[in-house]
Every structure is written in C-alpha cells, then in structure tokens.
Amino acid sequence: MSWDWEFAIKVFPEIFNVIWLVIGITFGAYAVALVFGLILTFARRSSFKPLSWTVYGFIEFIRSTPPLVQLFFVYFALPLIGISLNKYVAGILTLGIHYSTYVSEVYRSGIDSIEKGQWEAARALNFTKSQTWSKVILPQAIPPVIPMLGNYLIVLFKETPLLMAIGVVEFLQKAFLIGADHFKYLEPLTIVGLLFLLLSYPAALLINRLEKWSNQAYGKGSR
C-alpha cells in the first residue's frame, strides 16, 4: 500500500471545505483570548490582594493543565452544574481562555516595558486612572507586542484539532472520518498536515517580518 493520488485528489475538497469552520473557531478563540487576557492582566495588577492572588493562581493552574482535559470539563462537566454550551462555544471558550493566560503574559511584558516616567507624566497632567491607561500606557504598550500576539493566532489555529475530542468536525476529524470510511488514513491525514503547514508557515513568516519591522520601529535589537 502506498500513496493513492486519485483518492487524495478526491478527498481534498471534502477536507478543505471545513476551512471556514476552522477559521471561525480560530478567530473566535483568539477574540476570547485577547479580551479575557486583558481582563486577567488588569485583575493581576489589582491592588486588592485577594483578587490579584486568585487571578495569579488561576493563570498558573490553567497554564499548566492540559487544554484537552479543560475541554472535557467545560463540555461534559459544566452542564451538570447548569451551564450548557454547544460544542463550538465550548471549544472556542476553552481554547480562548487557555491561551488568554499566555496572552496576558504578553500584555504584561508590554506594560512592564513602559518607563516609570510615563506614569509620572500622566499623573503630573492629572489624568484619571482610566485616562492614563487608555491614552498613555496601552497605546505604547500594545504596538510593540503585536507580533507576539499574532503568534498566538497561529498557535490557536494549530490547536483546533483538539476539538475533535468533543465531536467538532474540523480538519483532523474530517480526515479521520474519511480515513475510517475507506480504511485509508495516509492520504487524508497527510492532506491535513499539508493544510496546516501551508496556512501557518506563510503566516509565521509574515509575523516574523512584522517582528523585525516592529523591532526597528520601537528601537529594540535593531542591530
């Protein structure tokens, strides 16, 4: 048994058609990660210690336990305590929240790189706290970390196969089902691998370029 071109060409469109679902899940989860990550960042910085410690614990816990098990928890266990989510929402929320802990780390690094003088200047101009954040800190903290944030879009894209575990028919599940139908796994699984490579590698190159450009623009490691 070896590679069967005819079969590969036949099943390619079937697998490729799933792309819109995959993209939808990716961007949905990314939006959750970006927003929830920002919330975590602020909560982490809260001067109300019980909150900041709880959030710290939450971040460490979520970051160091498998997203797959978290997915099962959200999809199978939450309904039993009254929170029922369909598989797509469960998948998007799980991936989004899992990676929000990474994203919040990125925000944090951006905020930490702002000089103390900027805070002092904002205070000297009598800005309110929210003005300080929205007008002074975030506009400086976010742009330099955009490439790093972009990386997590690719990471999330590559994590979508996880959702096959709760029956979402994304690339891998689709390929696996086709494979099981024909007892031929090589072609569909290879196609999935190639799809991931073809979609994520150019994106990674783009982000690389963005990173170089951003390093120059923000004067880091320009040598």
Partner: peptide
C-alpha cells in the same frame, strides 16, 4: 523544525499512528 512547528501535534500523532502503517 519548521515542519513540526508548522503542523499540529495531534495531527502528527495521528499521522504516525494511523498513516505511517501504510508504509
């Protein structure tokens, strides 16, 4: 490095377990 970073871990695992036997 690019091959394995550019695709998903789960896809790689499935490929090794289900597709490699074809060879």
């Amino acid at each position: 490095v690019e091959l394995f970073r550019g695709t998903s871990l789960l896809v790689q695992m499935f490929w090794i377990f289900f597709a490699l036997p074809a060879f």
